[in-house]
Write a protein that binds this DNA or RNA. Sequence first.
DNA 1: GTCTCAATTGAGATATAGTCTCGATAGTCA
DNA 2: TGACTATCGAGACTATATCTCAATTGAGAC
Lengths: 140, 140
Amino acid sequence: MPQLAAARLAARVGRMTASRRAVAAAVARQRGHFTAEALAAALPNVGRATVYRTLKILTEAGVLCRVLMDDGSLHYRLSGPGHHHHLVCVGCGAIQDFADSVVERVVSQLARAGSFTVEGHWLEVYGRCAGCSTAPSAAR
Amino acid sequence: MPQLAAARLAARVGRMTASRRAVAAAVARQRGHFTAEALAAALPNVGRATVYRTLKILTEAGVLCRVLMDDGSLHYRLSGPGHHHHLVCVGCGAIQDFADSVVERVVSQLARAGSFTVEGHWLEVYGRCAGCSTAPSAAR
DNA sequence: GTCTCAATTGAGATATAGTCTCGATAGTCA
DNA sequence: TGACTATCGAGACTATATCTCAATTGAGAC
Ligand SMILES: [Zn+2]
Ligand SMILES: [Zn+2]
Ligand SMILES: [Zn+2]
Ligand SMILES: [Zn+2]
């Protein structure tokens, strides 16, 4: 998986610098999702600005996707292929991807009804995973 | 319309203070959407913190809704009744509301398929309104 | 191998958005 | 008319992200 991220990165990125390698490696090492700040803190030898810049590149390259959490904070996560959205568990923070053409189609149709041309959209779904739906509000 | 906002506000809010009246009035005076900072700037006699606090109250009361713009900034807008989402024109900034049970249903079903209980969601749709779809990228 | 030069870096400044603190103020109700 | 407490507001503080610009360094040329 580290190799995969690195490979995809190389395919898109300009110069393969030490900093970019370090960020890519740290990203690949993450389990679950993480914030830009946390990643920057974990990479004291890489400038904060560079971490942010590299996360942007990785996101545009499709290696990462961004998740808007329940509390408004922005997290990153290794991205599955293609367009998708997230089911975010507000109990434990677990994230499941889902891709669905129905949502896309409905949105387009609704938009068309309002003489509106869709260029993009943002959808996040919050709730509780199987493990967290029994015991209310576990982790915090 | 000012009266409406003020009335709804009064129905929910604790003390009807001068500051809250001022914020409610300014909100009612807005055409389209606006940011918290812009509103605060337009109310030099009301503390910034109070503007934010009052916007929160108004949002919880259903007077306002929050719109996540294309560029990540958060705007406020007088809210229509009930749950709904927005079609945001990236050309001119116009916003149309839409309420749709199909989206809701699809999301619930998808979630259920993943043993996930939906508690809430966030959806914004970006694109171009009728006026802006002809001439590409008008206003900025 | 090493030279060259633009792409990239990173320390720190700056920007933006929002919350918190806490003494002062002022609604509300008896 | 108080008294009591919610609320206010000035400004500090936090969080997040971008910008500036001199110094560094990949990567291809030779
Ligand atoms: Zn969970
Ligand atoms: Zn989608
Ligand atoms: Zn438009
Ligand atoms: Zn909805």
